[in-house]
Amino acid sequence: MHFSARILSQGALLAVIGIIAGCAGSKPIVYTAEKFDSADVYSRRFPVPGNVACEAVRRTLLSQGYVINAATHEQVDGRKSFQPENDVHVQIAFRVVCAADTADGTTSSVFVNALEDRYALKKTNNSASLGVGALGSVSLPFSSSDDSLVKVASATISAENFYARFFQLVERYLTNEATPAPESMEITHPLVPTPTVTGP
């Protein structure tokens, strides 16, 4: 009886250890959050050609301090740097694609993706050494510190309000582009009076 109880207690202990190890080794499955049930967060449809939409996107990013890395009629890439703390550096990279929705190209969809990269300042201490003949190398009490930025996180921004504000500003630039110039701004050629010819 005592022997069987001991085996039972050992078995229970192994079961508990297995559960703890399983919990410690399990990793969150990211793709379960991908529902593919909505296209409103990362895209908008506009009644303009793709090149006009991408130009509005370029102006939108420029107005917010983004550096444009590349810009074509179909794609715009921009990047902006932040430093929320002394030893933390953050970069947001925008990639926007403008695709035609109709055969005549009068309507297009704008797809946007913003990636946030986070960097931390890491310090590495390097001890100086000096070679002394047969004695080999002798460590000196001097040291140097090399500071470097190391990427510690990278994730796609998924906040709906973030993209909603982006598309609102794009729409504002599209509205300004579509507004016709006032008549007072039109350039007209001045009338040149016809010279009169007089007789001798």
Rank of each mutant, 00 (worst) to 15 (best):
M1E: 09
R58P: 01
A153N: 12
P47N: 14
L140R: 04
L174D: 00
S81D: 02
L140D: 09
A93R: 10
A159M: 05
T156P: 11
R165S: 09
S158K: 09
A24E: 11
Q75Y: 13
A99S: 11
N113Y: 07
N126S: 13
L62K: 00
Q75V: 12
R79H: 01
S63N: 06
R6L: 13
F162D: 07
F36L: 11
T106C: 02
P28M: 05
V152G: 00
V152D: 01
G25R: 03
A155R: 10
P49V: 07
Y119S: 02
T194H: 03
V41K: 04
R79Y: 01
V110S: 04
L115D: 04
K27D: 02
M185A: 15
S158H: 12
I17N: 10
S184T: 15
A71D: 06
G133L: 10
D146H: 08
G18M: 04
D77L: 08
V170A: 14
I17P: 05
E55R: 09
D40V: 12
T179C: 00
F36N: 15
G18I: 09
A159H: 08
K151L: 13
P182M: 03
G22D: 02
S108H: 13
A100H: 11
Q10E: 03
R59N: 14
L140A: 12
E116Y: 01
G131H: 13
A33F: 12
R44Y: 00
L135K: 02
E34N: 10
A70H: 06
P47I: 07
H2F: 10
D147Y: 14
Q168S: 13
T60M: 07
S43N: 04
G22I: 03
A56S: 09
P182F: 00
F166C: 00
T196I: 09
I17T: 14
S38C: 11
N176L: 09
A21R: 07
Y42T: 14
E85W: 04
N126D: 08
V88L: 12
F162V: 00
V41T: 15
S38K: 09
H2C: 04
A53L: 15
Q91G: 02
Y66Q: 04
V138M: 09
S9Y: 00
G11C: 05
H2T: 15
F3C: 02
Y42H: 15
R95D: 03
F94H: 06
R6Y: 10
T32L: 14
S127C: 05
